[in-house]
């Protein structure tokens, strides 16, 4: 067993945690903004998949990685707007609309991918993001190579956390988001447009989900496969609960999940051969369910989550 632990706690392991946490951090922050405004976005799984596809395709056709990222972000915003159209403007059930958006986006992703690339025996790939060591910082022992020798998108995720906290807690717009998620009537009577604020928050959330998708197909796998997201979106929704709708805690939850995921990957590779590898694959999901069971009793969701706002309703 000692050998296993030695293998686990090394630079490569820390770097793997950061890498696994990155798309989850983007996705979790995106879902958090949406939910803080009172809109559950179950479309996240499909949106991430579609964004992974569009980003990959744009890069594959143009050769530009950043163009791919931009396309993925725009796709995410568009799908966010679609979800907001149904749930905010029309006030439809957030649960069912989210499932609808996921089914629609994943169907569209499969369809367009097959249309553009046809059926190939070896899936097409791109030259994805390369690690970008940050001078000086990457020379710090252990932490340096693990955290500061990463993809540009990883640094973006690291910066996104304090930025999200600043926006949510320190800006008037962030206050409006929290207010429409707690008591939309209060926001409305203070002259804040509930509909507009919710749209903006869900669209911003979509943009972040787009970054999550882009990371998967353009930095982690450098290809688009149908299983490229495989439940990460659902996990992000659980992480928002686990992180109590707070940017810092949510990011922390993403790191914790990434730790469990990285651990199971190491354990799979570490010759614990008599245990089927699927048992390890299950582990993060079971961990998430248990974590939710532990946390949910005291978790307090935004009061107006799932509640549509119609002004003249009596």
């Amino acid at each position: 067993m000692n050998a296993v632990f030695e293998q686990i706690f090394q630079v490569g392991f820390l770097a793997a945690i950061i890498r696994i946490a990155t798309p989850l951090a983007f996705a979790t922050l995106g879902e958090m903004f949406s939910e803080r405004a009172g809109v559950l976005n179950l479309g996240i799984e499909g949106i991430m998949l579609l964004c992974a596809m569009t980003g990959f395709t744009a890069t594959s056709l143009s050769g530009s990685l950043w163009l791919g990222v931009l396309v993925a972000v725009l796709t995410g915003m568009l799908m966010g707007a679609l979800h907001a159209l149904f749930t905010v403007a029309l006030g439809l059930s957030q649960h069912v609309c989210g499932i609808g958006v996921t089914l629609f986006s994943s169907g569209l992703a499969y369809f367009l991918y097959r249309l553009i690339f046809g059926q190939q025996s070896v899936p097409p790939s791109i030259k994805g993001f390369q690690t970008l060591p940050i001078p000086v910082l990457s020379d710090i022992p252990v932490l340096g190579p693990a955290v500061f020798n990463q993809f540009a998108l990883v640094y973006m995720a690291i910066l996104a956390i304090p930025l999200a906290a600043f926006v949510l807690y320190r800006t008037p717009w962030g206050l409006s988001v929290r207010m429409v998620g707690e008591n939309p009537r209060a926001a409305d009577s203070a002259g804040v447009s509930v509909i507009a604020t919710r749209f903006q928050a869900v669209i911003l959330g979509g943009a972040l989900m787009g970054l999550a998708g882009a990371f998967l197909s353009m930095a982690q796998f450098n290809a688009f496969t149908f299983g490229v997201v495989s439940g990460r979106g659902w996990v992000a929704i659980a992480l928002v609960v686990f992180g109590r709708w707070d940017p810092w805690r949510s990011a922390g939850a993403a790191l914790l999940f990434a730790f469990v995921d990285a651990l199971q990957l190491r354990m799979q590779a570490s010759g614990l051969g008599h245990i089927p590898y699927e048992a390890f694959l299950m582990l993060p999901f079971i961990f998430t369910i248990v974590a939710m069971a532990v946390m949910s009793r005291n978790a307090v969701a935004p009061s107006a989550l799932l509640k549509p706002f119609r002004r003249e309703e009596r």
Binding site: P172, R178, N183, A187, D188, A190, S303
Partner: peptide, 15 residues
């Protein structure tokens, strides 16, 4: 029309 979990000041500054 108040948000219970936000502070007095935040409720004043909304909008």
């Amino acid at each position: 029309h108040l948000a219970a979990r936000l502070t007095v000041l935040e409720n004043l500054l909304i909008g």
